[in-house]
């Protein structure tokens, strides 16, 4: 396995009236060829901004890439002009979004929307393009694709629409698919079907996937590796099995612990107190200090940002003694 995408020390800040919002503040992560890499975090953690920057989708201004690189097959995506990045968008890197209804044009037939990327990137038109489109719909498990391809988006249900989106994203056989909360708006049974489609296609085509979600359980079922983001920084990163076997950072542990599924009935849910910090007024030290109850907040760094260290082969974590510590009560339980 070789590295497909190497993000190094990415910094994206938004310059607003209220000050500089450090949406992404020094994130480094790698996506290997053909793997599903998960990015987990809450809203405001920087997970979507990180992904959007790869396709040049950050509005600038107010956004500004302050530093870092995103090497994709040797090319730094952050330094490309609008014209150059268009060579990657939809061809080598595709994206699917949370709400398929807003990302499909309601006035165009699915056939038109599916063949469009082929026309743009492969100059494939007419019958052959339509055949590829039908094939793509069949791949994502849409029955009677030959007929249904001529329908409009509103004639599909939510789950089916997301399948159409996936077919559209994968039709050019990209090397990387970015999936931004693709199942958050779907019902559980539909979510399962869509997740299965993504995983099966990923296995078949060898496309690497960046899977963005806030749901740890989905990450566990889908991803080969997990990156946990908090307040614009990478907190912990490890292969999935390793991370769930031995979560180290207090935030990762907190996320796991606050899941109702891990609690007995009537028992108080563990919850991470408070709110994520204001990204325009980040503390100088560990940004999780104020909410750290599973570690030892008194040991958290206050003077500098904790550095990411490789604590074990492949397992990276922010080296903050307070967040790595285990609260005694927690150890006993």
């Amino acid at each position: 396995m070789s590295t497909l995408l190497d993000i190094q020390d990415l910094k994206i800040h938004f310059h607003t009236r209220d000050g500089v919002v450090k949406a992404v503040d020094g994130v480094s992560l790698k996506v290997e060829q053909g793997e599903i890499a998960g990015i987990v975090g809450e809203s405001g953690s920087g997970k979507s901004v990180t992904a959007y920057s790869l396709l040049g989708l950050i509005p600038m201004p107010p956004g500004k890439i302050e530093g870092g690189r995103a090497l994709f097959q040797g090319t730094d995506l952050l330094r490309l002009s609008e014209r150059e990045i268009n060579q990657f968008r939809g061809r080598k890197i595709s994206m699917i979004f949370q709400d398929p209804m807003t990302s499909l044009n309601p006035y165009l037939r699915v056939s038109t929307q599916l063949t469009e990327p082929l026309a743009i990137h492969e100059r494939l038109h007419g019958k052959p393009a339509l055949h590829r489109a039908i094939e793509a719909l069949e791949q994502v498990g849409i029955e009677n694709a030959e007929k249904r391809i001529h329908s409009y988006p509103h004639e599909f249900s939510g789950g089916m629409r997301q399948r159409v989106m996936i077919a559209m994203a994968l039709i050019t056989k990209p090397d990387l698919l970015i999936a931004d909360e693709p199942t958050t708006a779907l019902d559980v049974t539909v979510q399962k079907q869509v997740l299965d489609v993504i995983r099966n296609l990923q296995k078949e085509t060898g496309t690497a996937v960046i899977f963005i979600t806030h749901d740890l359980a989905v990450v566990h079922e889908m991803c080969d590796s997990v990156n946990v983001l908090y307040a614009g920084r990478l907190i912990e990163s490890a292969p999935t099995a390793e991370l769930f076997h031995k979560p180290l950072h207090a935030y990762t542990r907190g996320l796991y612990k606050s899941n109702p599924g891990t609690h007995r009935k009537g028992e108080d849910l563990y919850s991470i107190p408070g709110l994520p910090p204001d990204l325009s007024r980040l503390p100088a030290g560990c940004s999780f200090r104020a909410r750290n109850t599973l570690g030892d907040a008194s040991l958290c760094l206050t003077d500098r940002q904790p550095e990411l260290i490789e604590i074990q082969a492949g397992h990276f974590v922010q080296n903050c003694p307070g967040c790595l510590a285990r609260h005694e009560a927690a150890v006993v339980s």
């Binding site: 809203s43 405001g44 204001d278």
Partner: peptide, 8 residues
């Protein structure tokens, strides 16, 4: 991007 309002 959501900017959480912190209220002290």
């Amino acid at each position: 991007m959501e900017n959480s309002t912190t209220i002290q």
